Deep mutational scan, measured.
Amino acid sequence: TYYTVKSGDTLNKIAAQYGVSVANLRSWSGISGDLIFVGQKLIVKKG
């Protein structure tokens, strides 16, 4: 599943919304830090 980052989103908010960890969200999407951008597509795998 892809999630497109919206204004005001954080990795914590997105992870909580999908019931996954921030570490997994980073790993799946190839992100090393906490910086995400509006319009960026993140990969989300539901448990």
Results as ranks from 00 to 15, higher is better:
residue 1 T to W: 15
residue 1 T to D: 13
residue 1 T to H: 14
residue 2 Y to E: 12
residue 2 Y to A: 08
residue 2 Y to W: 13
residue 2 Y to T: 11
residue 2 Y to D: 07
residue 2 Y to R: 07
residue 2 Y to I: 13
residue 3 Y to E: 02
residue 3 Y to N: 01
residue 3 Y to I: 09
residue 4 T to C: 10
residue 4 T to I: 15
residue 4 T to W: 12
residue 4 T to A: 06
residue 5 V to R: 00
residue 5 V to Q: 01
residue 6 K to M: 10
residue 6 K to H: 07
residue 6 K to F: 04
residue 6 K to I: 09
residue 6 K to C: 07
residue 6 K to G: 07
residue 7 S to R: 10
residue 7 S to F: 14
residue 7 S to D: 14
residue 8 G to E: 06
residue 8 G to Y: 05
residue 9 D to T: 00
residue 9 D to P: 00
residue 9 D to G: 01
residue 9 D to N: 01
residue 10 T to A: 04
residue 10 T to L: 04
residue 10 T to D: 08
residue 11 L to G: 00
residue 11 L to D: 00
residue 11 L to E: 01
residue 11 L to K: 00
residue 11 L to N: 00
residue 11 L to Q: 01
residue 11 L to F: 06
residue 11 L to R: 00
residue 12 N to T: 14
residue 12 N to M: 14
residue 12 N to S: 14
residue 13 K to A: 12
residue 13 K to H: 10
residue 13 K to S: 15
residue 13 K to C: 11
residue 13 K to F: 09
residue 14 I to D: 00
residue 14 I to V: 08
residue 14 I to N: 00
residue 15 A to H: 00
residue 16 A to L: 13
residue 16 A to I: 11
residue 17 Q to L: 14
residue 17 Q to M: 15
residue 17 Q to E: 14
residue 18 Y to I: 10
residue 18 Y to Q: 08
residue 18 Y to R: 04
residue 18 Y to F: 15
residue 18 Y to T: 07
residue 18 Y to K: 04
residue 19 G to K: 10
residue 19 G to N: 11
residue 19 G to Q: 10
residue 19 G to F: 07
residue 19 G to Y: 06
residue 20 V to R: 01
residue 20 V to M: 08
residue 20 V to G: 01
residue 20 V to I: 14
residue 20 V to L: 08
residue 21 S to K: 06
residue 21 S to V: 04
residue 22 V to R: 03
residue 22 V to T: 08
residue 23 A to L: 07
residue 23 A to Y: 06
residue 23 A to N: 10
residue 23 A to C: 11
residue 23 A to T: 10
residue 23 A to V: 10
residue 24 N to Y: 06
residue 24 N to H: 10
residue 24 N to T: 12
residue 25 L to Q: 00
residue 25 L to V: 09
residue 25 L to E: 00
residue 25 L to C: 02
residue 25 L to F: 03
residue 26 R to V: 12
residue 26 R to Y: 05
residue 26 R to P: 02
residue 26 R to K: 15
residue 27 S to R: 12
residue 27 S to A: 15
residue 27 S to Y: 12
residue 27 S to D: 15
residue 28 W to F: 06
residue 28 W to Y: 06
residue 28 W to D: 06
residue 28 W to S: 06
residue 29 S to V: 05
residue 29 S to Q: 07
residue 29 S to A: 08
residue 29 S to C: 05
residue 30 G to Y: 07
residue 30 G to N: 12
residue 30 G to F: 07
residue 31 I to F: 09
residue 31 I to T: 05
residue 31 I to G: 03
residue 31 I to N: 03
residue 32 S to D: 14
residue 32 S to R: 09
residue 33 G to F: 07
residue 33 G to N: 10
residue 33 G to A: 08
residue 34 D to V: 07
residue 34 D to R: 06
residue 34 D to K: 06
residue 35 L to C: 12
residue 35 L to Y: 14
residue 35 L to W: 10
residue 35 L to P: 08
residue 36 I to S: 02
residue 36 I to F: 06
residue 36 I to Q: 02
residue 37 F to H: 11
residue 37 F to Y: 14
residue 37 F to V: 11
residue 37 F to A: 09
residue 37 F to K: 10
residue 37 F to D: 08
residue 37 F to L: 09
residue 38 V to N: 06
residue 38 V to R: 05
residue 38 V to Y: 05
residue 38 V to S: 07
residue 38 V to H: 06
residue 38 V to A: 10
residue 39 G to P: 00
residue 39 G to I: 03
residue 39 G to M: 03
residue 39 G to E: 04
residue 39 G to A: 03
residue 39 G to W: 04
residue 39 G to V: 04
residue 40 Q to H: 04
residue 40 Q to F: 05
residue 40 Q to A: 05
residue 40 Q to K: 03
residue 40 Q to S: 05
residue 42 L to T: 02
residue 42 L to F: 02
residue 42 L to N: 01
residue 43 I to G: 03
residue 43 I to T: 10
residue 44 V to K: 02
residue 44 V to S: 02
residue 44 V to W: 04
residue 44 V to N: 02
residue 45 K to E: 11
residue 45 K to P: 10
residue 45 K to H: 13
residue 46 K to I: 15
residue 46 K to V: 15
residue 46 K to R: 12
residue 47 G to R: 11
residue 47 G to W: 11
residue 47 G to E: 13
residue 47 G to T: 13
